[in-house]
Amino acid sequence: MRHDHLITSKQLSRPDIETVLDRAAEIDADPSAVADRHANTLLGLLFFEPSTRTKMSFETAMKRLGGDVVDMGSVESSSVKKGETLADTVRVIEGYTDALVLRHPKQGAATMASEFVDVPLLNAGDGAGHHPTQTMLDLYTIRENAGLDDLTIGIMGDLKYGRTVHSLAHALTNFETQQHFISPESLQLPREVVYDLHQRQDGTGIKEHESLEGVLPSLDVLYVTRIQRERFPDENEYQKVAGEYQIDAETLEAASDDLTVMHPLPRVDEIAPEIDDTDYAAYFDQAHNGVPVRMALLDLLLSDDRGIRGETDE
């Protein structure tokens, strides 16, 4: 199936994902080959909530493809403040640009916006919903470091509210993976997400744990996310819980030498800085991979033969 927009990683089949990752690897290997590929192309940046990092990454990707960006700016300074609907905003900006990137606080915003526009729309986060470009760069990083099949991955931290986790877990069901979810009971995966994962797999590939200790030695990848203070009623409770889901050099003594540690960043104290210089750490590479992966997505969606489509599909 051809995809004209990128709304959720759920829409992508394994061949679709591989098409994107392969293209990203080509671009990563020789960025100069695509330096003028999308000259005169304008990307509209519609960020209804702040996300400097994601916005800069998209801006860099578009410029490295020879194009440029126009930025709506902050919500405070735009017509949105005057009560314009999202449907109107995207229909106006679509007339200025060749593609749109949307981040919006409401879930389903990108799905709805895509129904109003003809230019490709990329979802850069819709509230507690999806963030598929993050998922694609996570998959790219996992593939580079550990491979996506025969993979045993631990995903740890705030699994309840972390949208990157939900998207990633779902995307991984396209591959032969054993997924371990490690979190305090109060921050377990939402039942909706578990329901989806079980729809995709027979359940043998998915296990939930409250402690890292038992599963750590078996992991190829440990994906750490931040547990936020505001999820807990009081400071003591937070300190007690958060401490159990932080890792340092001592924690990793029980891990395989080939373990890859990932984190969507920014981190606070979930991963001790002493791990940064070890072979385990892949989180800065992961952040850098956002550029070639977003270049690949923009390239696929903006090419004449436009759309993301896996080779064995259709």
């Binding site: 609907t85 606080p105 409401k106």
Partner: peptide, 13 residues
């Protein structure tokens, strides 16, 4: 029923 859903605002959807 989700207050965070785009359909619960003023959008023409």
């Amino acid at each position: 029923p989700n207050a965070g859903c785009i359909t619960t605002g003023d959008e023409p959807v």
